[in-house]
Every structure is written in C-alpha cells, then in structure tokens.
C-alpha cells in the first residue's frame, strides 16, 4: 500500500492537510445521494450460472462439478436456488436440493451451498437469503418440507454461529465428510420448518428482500 508521503511527493500539488477525508465529504446533501442499498434476487438460468460458479469458486475451498450446477437449474428448485444482487452487483447465491423420503410426498431440504462474498458480509444478506429459502420451504406443497439441513466444516465457527442464530442445531458430527480438505469432519446442522416461517417476509430481516 502506498504511504501518504510517497503519495504527496508523486502527485499532490497542494499540501496533504488540504485533503478532505472521505467521511467529511457530505454524503446526504441533497445532491445525488446514493440510493439505499437495494437487495434483489434472481432465479438461476443457464445464462447466469457462470456467475454462480464464480462466486462459489471464490468462497468455497472445494470446487463443484458441472453436474452439480446442471442439477441446480431444475425448475422445481427455482424458489430455493437464487442469485442475490446488492445494488445490481451479484454477491451471493444459494443452491439447494430435495432429499426425498421414499414412499411419501415429503422431503428434507438440503442446503448444498450458500455463499456470500467476504466483502459483503455483516450486511444481513445471508440472513435475508436464508429467510427467503425457509419461507419458500414452508410454502412448498409437493414435496412437503419438514426439515432443512446443512453441512458445516468443523473449522468454520463463523458459519456455525450464523446458522445457530437462525435456529439451526448441530445434530451430529460427520466423520471424514470432506475428501480433499482438512479438517475433513463436518457438523450436520438442522432446523425444523415452523408455522412462523410461512409468514416471514417482513418479520426477520431488517430490509425485506424484493424478489
């Protein structure tokens, strides 16, 4: 990173003291104030799947096969598999699949990947995205969804905390879940779908997601 001294000697024709720190540059003067952050989501298509791949590539230590992405495009998963935009910039995505119970029209929903780019964390984006998934799960008729679950690498305490905040509980620790990365163990975290999830939309998130 450039120090301020080299900076001045290179470019500054006036003393550095004259420079205005960014926080002192008026923000909400009436002139062109930036619109409040707008978070929107889109369903996955073969045209934007490249973006999903790229986000997952950056966020996860393991890479997913083309087959995985092809399956994510299934029409029945449209409400669960979403690409999330922050001011029209793609920054997060979630891919799920049904884990069907044989013999009945019920299923568990498995969150295969949920990624938010590092620079856009702590903005409640993950929370809102998850709320969207839970809401869709609660409203889903066929198959009917009772439980949502996810695998979290045992080193990833940040993710564990996140899911715990959202009502997930560690059900078990799966030995050698990961083949190519260490630690290889994963927590299996679960959450039941409750009646409240149906009516989420406005409740849980600070800013409702516009779909």
């Amino acid at each position: 990173m450039m120090t301020s001294e080299t900076l001045i000697s290179h470019v500054s024709p006036t003393p550095a003291a004259d420079a205005i720190p960014i926080e002192r540059i008026p923000r909400s003067a009436d002139w062109k104030k930036p619109p409040p952050a707008r978070i929107t989501t889109a369903s996955l298509t073969k045209n934007n799947i490249g973006t999903v791949k790229r986000i997952n590539q950056v966020v996860f230590p393991i890479s997913y096969s083309n087959k995985f992405y092809d399956e994510s495009l299934a029409a029945e998963l449209e409400e669960f598999n979403r690409l999330v935009y922050y001011n029209d910039i793609p920054i997060a995505c979630v891919c799920c699949r049904f884990d069907r119970t044989t013999g009945s029209d019920t299923a568990k929903l498995y969150i295969a990947t949920m990624a938010v780019l590092a620079a856009y964390r702590s903005l409640t984006i993950g929370r809102q995205t998850l709320a969207l998934v839970l809401h869709a799960a609660a409203a889903h008729k066929s198959p009917k969804i009772s439980v949502v679950y996810v695998h979290v690498q045992v080193s990833n305490t940040e993710a564990r905390k996140f899911y715990e905040r959202e009502g997930f509980k560690v059900a078990s620790e799966v030995k050698d879940y990961y083949k190519k990365i260490t630690p290889a163990n994963a927590w299996l975290m679960e959450r039941e779908i409750t009646a409240e999830d149906t009516g989420h939309k406005e409740g849980t998130a600070d800013r409702p997601i516009a779909v």
Binding site: L7, P13, T14, A19, I22
Partner: peptide
C-alpha cells in the same frame, strides 16, 4: 496535468482510507 494529478491524489487517498477501515 495539474487537474489529473489532483484527481489521482484524491481517489488514491479515498482508496487508502477505505482499505484501512476495511
């Protein structure tokens, strides 16, 4: 050239501030 240098200076500085707080 002077204007160019001023713009460069300002934007570099903004980047520095933002990077630091990041």
């Amino acid at each position: 050239d002077i204007k160019r240098a001023i713009v460069e200076d300002i934007v570099l500085r903004i980047r520095e501030e933002l990077a630091a707080s990041n």
